[in-house]
Nucleic acid binder design. Sequence first.
DNA 1: CCAGCGTATTGATAGACATCAATACGTACT
DNA 2: AGTACGTATTGATGTCTATCAATACGCTGG
Lengths: 125, 125
Amino acid sequence: MGNPKSAQSKAPKVHPRKATPAPKVCCGTARDIPLSEPDSEELAAVFAALADPVRLRLLSLLSSSPNGEVCACDLVTPVGKSQPTVSHHLKVLHDAGLVSREKRGVWVWYKVETAKLKQLSETLQ
Amino acid sequence: MGNPKSAQSKAPKVHPRKATPAPKVCCGTARDIPLSEPDSEELAAVFAALADPVRLRLLSLLSSSPNGEVCACDLVTPVGKSQPTVSHHLKVLHDAGLVSREKRGVWVWYKVETAKLKQLSETLQ
DNA sequence: CCAGCGTATTGATAGACATCAATACGTACT
DNA sequence: AGTACGTATTGATGTCTATCAATACGCTGG
């Protein structure tokens, strides 16, 4: 009895090693949540737009175009999906602010919103 | 008859304006697809891991920690979800290579894989 | 060895989404 | 006006996923 451990036995049962050097160990720290719930939902929506292989290939096709823009009609064949499906994906990208659309007569041209991508890129690191 | 239009009438019906300055207008260009299907699926999987507000807030909590790492037990309360749900999300992040785990006794500490985030950030721009 | 606690897994359920066929809408050309 | 074509929308369907309750796994202290 009376060993050194007894003095420690009344200490709170928190992770003993590598606890933060700050006074309060861990649980219940008043650290304000860095990313608010609305912000996280907004960000998640943008990432959700990128979370599809077809949409990534659409973006890839747009950015690799010499003009930086591609007619919607030229996007159906490369991605190997039906026209309604491609139209749906382009709408998702547009709603997320990742691409812009410009109608010229019958055709619709899509362009990557590089500013949005750059902003997103900075958010990551 | 014999108006200038007749000479053009036999031309292929492609978007007439702002067509690429290159000889071949657009359709059927032999442009190699910049992002292959397997690559796009792999990338999409990573973005899918980011496409959830809870996971974004988990990442945010990790990166704002002074140690750069947080015990799993300290992540349940801030995000306001059940323990199994948080564990599930952490697994998704881990499977995507976005966080690393280290078990210390009973506790598991999670850390952001900054290299992975940096790589992803560069992919975007 | 047993009890307690942190963590992960399983099972079930409700909601979201990708896909395509069919259809509607708009524009250009005759 | 009417046909043809590019694009968007609607409806239906199968798959995926976020969530939690219940449970199992693993480590620690007695």
